[in-house]
């Protein structure tokens, strides 16, 4: 059990380091948005999901857009249903207590590391847990450091800080690009997002664009037939 933890921890260190770049930016942004050190710390531990935290920080203002934020976090983290489902084989022999406690520590990165290792050898959920703790340490370290250093950044426009989030999200989006199948759904998503951005007040364009694009993707797969089936 212990060795699985250590194996998972060390296997996740390389991705952990690359996650630090995101973390630093998130920390600086959080500071500029008025998210306190403690609130960021809580988010890191309780939510522990990068993209969702970026969305939250970006939507953060007084008064808090609660409904939009909850919807956005729910929608963007829906993928954890699939991630959780894909982990069913790993947890097959685990107790309920293990499931309840360890599943919290799954994020995109250690999930990917765990799944690729699972193909090669038999590992326990503690491999995933070790990776999660590793990620959490890098995540806490980098986001909170970014928050502390946020003070130094004075002119956010000149150094393009307001655009950093867009760049970060663009590189995240690229990671989700699924070849030709993505083109039409993405065009639909972009179009619907922009139209509702112009017409509907608040941040609903994220949900409208996201759902319509994903719906088109499903339709496309449904009519063309899913090759992976």
């Amino acid at each position: 059990m212990k060795s699985n933890f250590i194996k998972g921890f060390s296997a996740t260190i390389p991705v952990g380091i690359s996650v630090c770049a995101y973390g630093l930016v998130l920390g600086v942004l959080a500071y500029s948005r008025g998210v306190t050190f403690f609130q960021l710390f809580l988010m890191d531990i309780i939510t522990f999901a990068g993209s969702a935290q970026f969305l939250m920080v970006e939507l953060w203002k007084d008064p808090l857009p609660i409904t939009e934020m909850l919807f956005a976090v729910f929608a963007i983290n829906l993928r954890y249903l699939l991630i959780g489902a894909s982990l069913t084989p790993l947890f097959r022999e685990s107790s309920v207590f293990e499931k309840i406690t360890l599943i919290h520590f799954v994020a995109d990165e250690n999930w990917a590391v765990t799944m690729s290792r699972l193909k090669k050898e038999k590992i326990s959920p503690f491999f995933l847990f070790g990776g999660g703790i590793c990620l959490l340490m890098f995540w806490l370290g980098s986001t909170l450091a970014g928050h502390r250093f946020g003070v130094i950044v004075s002119d956010t426009y000149v150094i393009g800080l307001d655009f950093v989030i867009i760049i970060i999200f663009t590189s995240l989006v690229a990671g989700f690009y699924d070849g030709k199948d993505s083109i039409v759904p993405w065009l639909v998503a972009a179009l619907f997002a922009y139209i509702s951005f112009l017409l509907i007040p608040g941040q609903w364009y994220i949900i409208v664009g996201g759902l319509s694009g994903a719906f088109v993707y499903s339709l496309e797969k449904y009519f063309r037939g899913d090759k992976s089936e």
Binding site: A85, A193, F215, Y222
Partner: peptide, 29 residues
Amino acid sequence: GLVTGDLLSKHKFIENLIRALPGTLLLSF
């Protein structure tokens, strides 16, 4: 997800919808 596991993969339409969501949401953003 962990609990419903195999149940989810039976509904391809939903599964594809969920699979496409992160990309389309971030793009819309």
